[in-house]
Lab assay of single mutants.
Amino acid sequence: MQIFVKTLTGKTITLEVEPSDTIENVKAKIQDKEGIPPDQQRSIFAGKQLEDGRTLSDYNIQKESTLHLVLR
C-alpha cells in the first residue's frame, strides 16, 4: 500500500509499505529516499509519536494515510 510522509519543509514523500511493516522499517525506507538517519526521525500520526517496534497496523495506518516527519 502507499502512504505519504510530509516533512516540515512541506515536501511529501510517497512510500510503498505493508500494514505489517514496523515503524523502524518505514524510517529505513525514508532514509533510502531522503538520506535522513532513522535516529533523527520522529514520525507523528494523528497527533501521536510512533514507536519503532510497533507496526503500521498497530496505529491503524491505512493506505494513503499521511505521516508527519519531524527531525530531532
Rank of each mutant, 00 (worst) to 15 (best):
V17T: 01
K27P: 01
E16I: 13
Q62I: 11
V5F: 05
I3G: 01
E34L: 15
V26C: 03
L15I: 12
Q40F: 10
T7I: 14
G47F: 06
S65L: 04
S57R: 12
P37E: 09
T55P: 10
K29Q: 07
F45G: 02
K29M: 13
P19N: 05
G53F: 12
S65M: 11
Q41S: 09
E34N: 09
K6C: 15
K6E: 05
K48V: 14
E18H: 14
P37T: 08
E51S: 06
T14A: 09
L67G: 01
Q62T: 14
K11P: 04
K11A: 08
G35R: 06
Y59V: 01
E34Y: 13
K29F: 05
V70H: 08
Q2T: 14
S65T: 08
T12P: 03
G35T: 02
I61H: 02
I30T: 02
E18T: 13
D39P: 08
S20H: 11
D32P: 03
S43Y: 15
A46K: 14
Q49M: 14
G10F: 04
F45T: 03
F45Q: 03
I13Q: 01
S65G: 05
N60R: 06
G47H: 07
Y59C: 02
D21P: 00
N60L: 06
L67E: 00
Q31A: 14
I36E: 06
I3D: 00
L8F: 13
E16T: 13
Q2D: 04
L8M: 13
S20V: 05
I36W: 14
S43C: 15
K27I: 13
I23W: 11
L8P: 14
L50I: 04
N60Y: 06
L8R: 11
T14C: 07
Q31N: 11
S57K: 12
T55W: 02
D32H: 10
E16P: 03
Q41W: 15
G10S: 02
R42Q: 14
L50Q: 01
D52R: 03
V70K: 07
V70P: 01
P38T: 14
I44W: 14
D21T: 08
E24S: 12
R42T: 15
F4I: 03
E18L: 14
E34P: 04
R42L: 15
K11V: 09
T9R: 11
D52N: 10
I3N: 01
Q40R: 11
A46Q: 13
D52W: 05
I36A: 07
T14G: 04
D21Y: 07
T22K: 07
G10A: 02
K48I: 14
L15H: 00
V26E: 01
D21H: 04
D39C: 12
G53V: 07
I36G: 09
A28Q: 13
T12C: 12
Q2I: 15
G35K: 06
I23E: 03
K63M: 09
S65R: 02
E18V: 13
R72T: 12
A46L: 13
A28P: 00
F45L: 05
V70Y: 12
V17L: 03
V70E: 08
Q40D: 10
T66S: 04
P37L: 08
E24A: 15
V17W: 02
I13K: 00
L50M: 06
I3F: 02
E51Q: 10
M1Y: 14
K63V: 07
E34S: 13
N60V: 03
K27T: 05
E51H: 07
D21I: 05
A46P: 03
E64A: 10
H68L: 15
T7D: 05
L56G: 01
K33F: 10
G10H: 04
Q41R: 05
E64M: 12
D21G: 02
I3A: 00
Q41T: 13
L71W: 11
S57I: 07
F4D: 00
P37V: 07
K33H: 11
L56R: 00
L56Y: 03
D39T: 10
T7K: 02
G47C: 10
T9D: 13
Q2V: 15
T66K: 03
T14K: 09
T14R: 11
T55M: 09
K11E: 08
T55H: 05
T7G: 05
E34F: 14
S43I: 15
Q31P: 04
V26R: 03
L15S: 02
T66Q: 05
M1T: 02
D39F: 10
K63T: 11
T66I: 13
V17S: 01
K29D: 02
V5G: 01
V70S: 06
E24V: 07
E18C: 10
V17D: 00
M1E: 01
I23T: 03
G53D: 12
V5Y: 03
P37H: 11
N25W: 10
N25G: 08
I36C: 07
Q2P: 05
T9Q: 11
P38D: 08
Q31G: 09
E16S: 11
D39M: 09
S20K: 07
V17A: 04
E51P: 02
K29V: 04
L67P: 01
L67R: 00
K27E: 03
L8C: 15
Q31K: 10
M1N: 01
D58M: 04
E16V: 12
K11N: 08
E51M: 10
Q2R: 14
P37M: 09
G35W: 05
N25H: 11
K33M: 13
R54P: 03
G53C: 07
L15N: 00
Q40A: 10
L56D: 01
F45V: 04
Y59M: 03
N60W: 05
S20A: 08
Q62P: 07
E16L: 13
Q41Y: 15
K27G: 03
D39Y: 12
R72G: 09
L71A: 10
T22D: 03
V17P: 00
V5P: 00
A28W: 13
S43P: 15
A46Y: 15
P37A: 11
K63H: 15
V26K: 00
F45C: 08
L8K: 09
V26G: 02
G53A: 10
K6D: 02
R72Q: 10
L50D: 03
D52T: 05
G10D: 03
E18I: 11
G47T: 05
R42K: 12
S20D: 11
I23N: 01
K27N: 06
E51C: 10
F4G: 01
I61D: 00
T22C: 03
P19Y: 07
K11H: 09
V5R: 00
L67A: 00
E18P: 03
K63D: 12
L8W: 15
I13F: 14
T14L: 09
G53H: 14
D21M: 10
L69V: 08
L50H: 02
I23F: 04
R54Y: 12
L56P: 01
K33E: 08
P19I: 08
S57G: 09
I30G: 02
M1I: 11
D32R: 11
V17I: 04
S43F: 15
R72S: 12
I13H: 04
R54A: 08
E34M: 15
T9P: 02
I30E: 01
E34K: 05
D39I: 10
T7E: 03
T22G: 02
H68A: 05
L56V: 06
L71Q: 10
I3M: 01
E64V: 02
S65H: 07
Q49P: 12
T55S: 08
H68Y: 15
F4T: 05
E18G: 07
P38G: 09
Q62M: 10
S20W: 14
R42N: 13
V5E: 01
S57D: 07
K6N: 04
V26Q: 00
E16R: 10
K48T: 12
E34T: 15
L69W: 03
K33C: 07
L67K: 00
I13R: 00
I13G: 01
L56N: 00
P19T: 08
R72I: 14
